[in-house]
Amino acid sequence: MFGGPYPWSLYCGQWSILPPAPKGNYLKDKVVVITGATSGVGLEASKQFADASPEQLIFAVRSVEAGEKLLGQIRKAHPNLQDKVMYLDLTDLQNIKDFSEAIKVFGRVDILINNAGINPNFDEGPYKSTKDGYERVFQTNVLSPFLTTLLLLPLLRKSSDPKVIFTGSDVHHIAPSDLIETALQNGQSIISAYNDEGKYHNPTRYYESKLLLQILSRNLIKTLPDITTINVNPGLAMTNLGRDFNLSLSPSGIVGILWFVANARSASKAARNLTSAAA
């Protein structure tokens, strides 16, 4: 729940003075793909990317309508920007495969930003699976970004300086690791462990997804030495990531809301960590 128990690193990070957003045409001649571009940190990062003069800025989003609305806003400030909205639903593995085929028309991908994600809330909640049969948070936050990256490897390797960025979180520090450890000790599949409805715990699933994403990122650094892999922590930010939260006006609920408002940074400031990683 909001308010704890969070590591001191979260507070140190939240209250550190961030460097300004990178300036200049640092994305010149770059084909940039960003998922989850229509809200929160992704939206603000997309605006900052547009300022950097990319050769092509591609918004891979689940809501094409919201993506087109974003394009309309950005084109007012950047009428000559080459941009494109493409449909991508991380809860549908076949759609990810279709996306990886459709995007080949651009010839290459220089920077892939795996930003899209969900937080189911920190209350007790039901187990929900996707049409592919995977627990929805695990698929959206871990499996699908990983698959997207692997399917786009041929296009990334056509870049002279390929880069993959994952939107992580400092909360991976406090995620329970018992499912991973038990699976490894028993020679079982970690994927199966996270798809086991009997072991599902909704309040910690977001944390666990960010831990798994951190582990995958670190392994990609080792296994893909020809591609720069970065896991970025935007920090606690004022976004709609908590749109599924059940907020109440109980004493504890009010304390949690006040804690969040006191510590969260703006989505625009949080996006600087993404744009700085890209620069």
Rank of each mutant, 00 (worst) to 15 (best):
I165E: 02
L224Y: 11
K210T: 05
K131F: 03
F138R: 02
Y127M: 03
G67F: 08
S53F: 14
K128R: 04
L236A: 02
D226E: 15
L150Y: 11
N141A: 13
D92I: 08
K269C: 07
T148Y: 04
L18R: 15
K269P: 01
A45K: 02
T223F: 07
M238L: 15
F146G: 03
R205E: 05
R157H: 09
S129H: 04
Q214N: 14
S268T: 14
P145T: 05
P5N: 13
A264Y: 08
G13A: 10
L156I: 10
T167H: 03
I191R: 00
L179H: 04
W8N: 06
S266N: 06
K199W: 11
N246F: 09
Y127A: 01
P145N: 02
D170W: 15
Q185K: 14
W15K: 05
K128L: 06
S159C: 02
R157V: 01
Q185L: 07
N231W: 11
G168W: 05
Y11W: 09
N240M: 03
Y26T: 03
A271M: 10
A21W: 09
G42E: 01
F122M: 11
L43T: 08
I17P: 04
D83Y: 00
R108C: 07
L274T: 00
A37T: 01
C12A: 15
S169C: 11
P126M: 10
A267K: 09
A183W: 05
G198H: 07
N115D: 13
I254S: 05
D132Q: 06
A267G: 04
T130W: 10
I221Q: 14
V171M: 10
P7C: 06
R136W: 05
H172L: 07
M238H: 15
D123T: 11
Q139M: 00
F245V: 03
K104Q: 15
N246C: 03
I254P: 07
E68D: 14
L249A: 13
K47V: 02
T35F: 06
L241Y: 09
F106C: 13
L184Y: 08
Y11G: 01
S268N: 11
